[in-house]
Design a binder for these strands. Structure first.
Lengths: 144, 144
DNA sequence: GGCAGTCGAAACATTAACGGTTACGACAGA
DNA sequence: TCTGTCGTAACCGTTAATGTTTCGACTGCC
C-alpha cells in the first residue's frame, strides 16, 4: 500500500514531549525529538505543525523556544493524531471513471465506497481506543 | 496515505467475470475487463495474476483464452482479495531505527507494532465479512 | 540595540510506488 | 500455419514521502 511512517513518528514525538515535560522541562526542541526518532528536525517540525493545527501541541518562538503539549496525553487518542497527519482515505477508487455503460462499471463505485466507509469507521473506532498515555506507558514498560 | 486502487480494481474484475459467466460465457478476456474498468489490459493481467496465485481465478491460453473463476463468488471474501493484491502493512514504523539509547526510542517500536497488529487484525475481520457475491449483488442493486 | 537559538516555511533532491504503455515470446485451438 | 490471448519484462510519467538546505521571523537575554 506504500504505507508511511507519519502516525508512528507523530506518536513518537508526542510521547517524547510528554516524558520530557514529566521530567520537569518546559519545552522540547525539534532537534531533540529528531535525534530520538533518527530523522531530520524539519520533518519533526512539519509533523508537529500538523498537530498544532489540530490543537494537540503548542510552539514557542524566540530564545527559549520549543514545543509543549496543549493537552494532557490522556486526553489525546491515536485517532486525533491520525486525523491530524493523514488526510486521505485508506483505499482509492478507480483512477479513471469506469465505463458507465457497463452494469458493473456503473454500480461498482458506490458499492465499494460503502464498504470502504464502513472499514474506515471501524479503523477510527480502533484508533480512538488508544490514548497517547497508553502509548507512553507501553513504551516505558519495554524490557531492557 | 497514498492509497492505491488495487483492491477496487480486483473486486471489479472478479464481479465482472462472475456476471459474465452467469450470462453463459466461459471465459472473460483482460481486454473486456479493462474496458469496463477504464484501464489497460496489462494492469488487469497483473492483478488477475495475483488472484490466480491465490487460487481465486484460472486462466487459459491459446485461442479461446481468458479468465474464469476458480471458485464460487460466494466463497471469496474481500480479505482473500486483499491478501492477494496487498502484501505490505497498513502503517510503517520508523524508516531508520530510532535511538536505542533514548527510552522512547528504545520502546516505541514494539509498542506501536502491537497497536498496528491489532488494527490490521480488525481490518481483516471486517474484510472477511464481505463476500464477492455481496459486492456483485450490491453492484447490481444500484439505481439507474 | 545586538546576539543567539529556535521555529516557520519554501525550495529542491532523492527514492519508491503506482499505473500506463509497448513489446514480444509462449501457448493452444482452428 | 495462423490467430488471439496470456505472461512477463521493460520503460515512462506522475505522485507521495522523506530528507536536506536555506533563510527570514521571532523573542529572551546580554
Amino acid at each position: 500500500m506504500s504505507a508511511n511512517s507519519r502516525l508512528t513518528i507523530a506518536a513518537h514525538a508526542l510521547a517524547w514531549i510528554g516524558l520530557y515535560q514529566r521530567q520537569g522541562h518546559e519545552v522540547a526542541t525539534s532537534e531533540q525529538i529528531a535525534a530520538s526518532a533518527s530523522t531530520n528536525p524539519v520533518v519533526i517540525r512539519r509533523l508537529l505543525g500538523d498537530l498544532r493545527r489540530a490543537g494537540l501541541v503548542e510552539s514557542r518562538r524566540g530564545v527559549g523556544a520549543g514545543w509543549s503539549l496543549a493537552r494532557d496525553l490522556e486526553s489525546m487518542t491515536l485517532l486525533d493524531v491520525y486525523e491530524a497527519v493523514e488526510p486521505g482515505p485508506l483505499f482509492a477508487l478507480h483512477r479513471a471513471a469506469p465505463d458507465p455503460g457497463c452494469v458493473v462499471g456503473y454500480g461498482i463505485q458506490p458499492a465499494m465506497q460503502r464498504i470502504y466507509d464502513g472499514i474506515e469507521e471501524t479503523l477510527r473506532r480502533e484508533l480512538a481506543r488508544v490514548t497517547l498515555k497508553d502509548v507512553l506507558q507501553d513504551v516505558l514498560a519495554a524490557p531492557r
